[in-house]
Simulated assay, not measured.
Amino acid sequence: MAVEGGGTLSEIYQNSKRLLLRTRDGLERLERLEFSSASGVDSPELSFAIKRDISQIQSLCVEMDRLWRSVAAKSQRDLWKRKVEQVAEEADSLKESLDKYFLRNQKRMMEAKERAELLGRANGESSHVLRIFDEEAQAMQSARNSSMMLEEAYMTGVAILSKYSEQRDRLKRAQRKALDILNTVGLSNSVLKIIERRHRVDKWIKYAGMVVTVIILFALLRWTR
């Protein structure tokens, strides 16, 4: 599964900021719905969308955490490290707020169900009310299960992409080393050829010197006679 908003570190960072803004707005709307009445109003679709956005932000943080480490300049690397950490911390804070909302909603559902059971024991007419709450509780549980499955799928996709990226980096490093070795071998061959040529020249100079020496000695012997 591809990570939404893939691209440069700056592009991924801007996408994560937009998602943070949308998630904060969604949480505010969810809380307004929750406190709009005494019993609270739930919106499974909205809470599911918020959960999905938070998972996406966390996935982008994983990708950014990999990318900022490859920034060449230390000052820029430190700056991006702080930016990514801030996004990750805000995503964790939003996730914590959403989890608290789920807990409050679950508590309201349990209290409402208990009240309905008490009323049922009193007048025997609460079966319909209990069925409504049971159906709503099942819908909420289904939304939570779907949200967890989506989050696991995102994290699995990010892990796969990270592995592919690491393998690609290793292949690039191996390719650079191979090119360096080839360049070194090419240079060594050139040096060996120069040495061989020099050795041949020295050998001919030695032979020529020996011949000249023999000729000089032979001439001196004849002259002394």
Score class of each variant (00 low, 15 high):
residue 34 E to R: 14
residue 165 S to L: 07
residue 66 R to K: 07
residue 78 D to P: 01
residue 159 A to F: 03
residue 86 Q to L: 07
residue 98 L to I: 07
residue 93 S to F: 06
residue 127 S to K: 05
residue 208 A to C: 04
residue 190 S to Y: 10
residue 209 G to C: 04
residue 117 E to Y: 15
residue 193 K to D: 08
residue 192 L to E: 08
residue 135 E to N: 13
residue 80 W to G: 05
residue 135 E to R: 12
residue 157 G to S: 00
residue 134 D to N: 09
residue 111 E to A: 11
residue 150 L to H: 03
residue 38 A to C: 05
residue 21 L to R: 15
residue 67 L to V: 00
residue 171 L to E: 15
residue 23 T to N: 02
residue 46 L to C: 02
residue 128 H to A: 13
residue 216 I to M: 03
residue 40 G to S: 06
residue 134 D to K: 11
residue 209 G to N: 11
residue 218 F to C: 13
residue 117 E to V: 13
residue 87 V to T: 11
residue 191 V to P: 01
residue 66 R to V: 03
residue 116 A to T: 02
residue 156 T to F: 04
residue 92 D to C: 01
residue 172 K to Q: 15
residue 144 R to Q: 06
residue 153 A to W: 07
residue 197 R to D: 12
residue 95 K to Q: 15
residue 168 R to A: 10
residue 64 M to C: 09
residue 122 A to P: 05
residue 112 A to F: 05
residue 145 N to Q: 04
residue 17 K to E: 07
residue 170 R to S: 14
residue 195 I to W: 07
residue 51 K to Q: 12
residue 17 K to C: 09
residue 59 S to R: 04
residue 36 S to Y: 00
residue 35 F to V: 13
residue 121 R to I: 06
residue 91 A to K: 02
residue 186 G to Y: 08
residue 27 L to N: 01
residue 125 E to F: 05
residue 203 K to Y: 07
residue 106 Q to L: 09
residue 159 A to K: 14
residue 140 M to W: 11
residue 183 N to H: 03
residue 135 E to I: 14
residue 195 I to Y: 07
residue 135 E to Q: 03
residue 139 A to S: 09
residue 40 G to L: 03
residue 32 R to E: 06
residue 141 Q to Y: 06
residue 143 A to L: 01
residue 135 E to L: 14
residue 83 K to M: 08
residue 125 E to K: 09
residue 190 S to Q: 14
residue 118 L to A: 09
residue 55 S to R: 00
residue 28 E to L: 13
residue 218 F to A: 12
residue 163 K to S: 14
residue 202 D to P: 09
residue 161 L to A: 07
residue 65 D to K: 12
residue 46 L to P: 00
residue 41 V to T: 00
residue 149 M to S: 12
residue 87 V to D: 00
residue 58 Q to I: 14
residue 25 D to K: 12
residue 172 K to N: 13
residue 165 S to C: 08
residue 170 R to A: 13
residue 48 F to P: 04
residue 42 D to F: 10
residue 216 I to F: 01
residue 201 V to K: 08
residue 94 L to K: 04
residue 210 M to S: 04
residue 217 L to K: 01
residue 133 F to A: 10
residue 176 R to P: 07
residue 212 V to D: 05
residue 94 L to E: 05
residue 136 E to K: 14
residue 194 I to R: 06
residue 21 L to P: 07
residue 21 L to W: 14
residue 30 L to W: 03
residue 60 L to E: 15
residue 27 L to G: 00
residue 60 L to V: 10
residue 59 S to Q: 01
residue 1 M to S: 05
residue 197 R to P: 01
residue 9 L to Q: 06
residue 207 Y to F: 12
residue 163 K to M: 13
residue 191 V to N: 15
residue 76 Q to Y: 01
residue 161 L to T: 01
residue 183 N to L: 03
residue 93 S to M: 03
residue 201 V to H: 08
residue 75 S to Y: 04
residue 9 L to K: 11
residue 20 L to G: 04
residue 203 K to F: 10
residue 124 G to V: 04
residue 2 A to W: 08
residue 114 E to F: 08
residue 153 A to G: 04
residue 184 T to N: 14
residue 138 Q to M: 03
residue 136 E to F: 02
residue 172 K to A: 13
residue 25 D to G: 12
residue 14 Q to M: 08
residue 74 K to W: 08
residue 19 L to W: 09
residue 66 R to S: 02
residue 136 E to N: 14
residue 125 E to C: 03
residue 221 L to P: 07
residue 137 A to D: 10
residue 83 K to I: 07
residue 201 V to L: 11
residue 163 K to D: 12
residue 80 W to K: 01
residue 119 L to C: 07
residue 17 K to S: 10
residue 101 Y to E: 08
residue 40 G to E: 09
residue 136 E to C: 10
residue 26 G to Q: 11
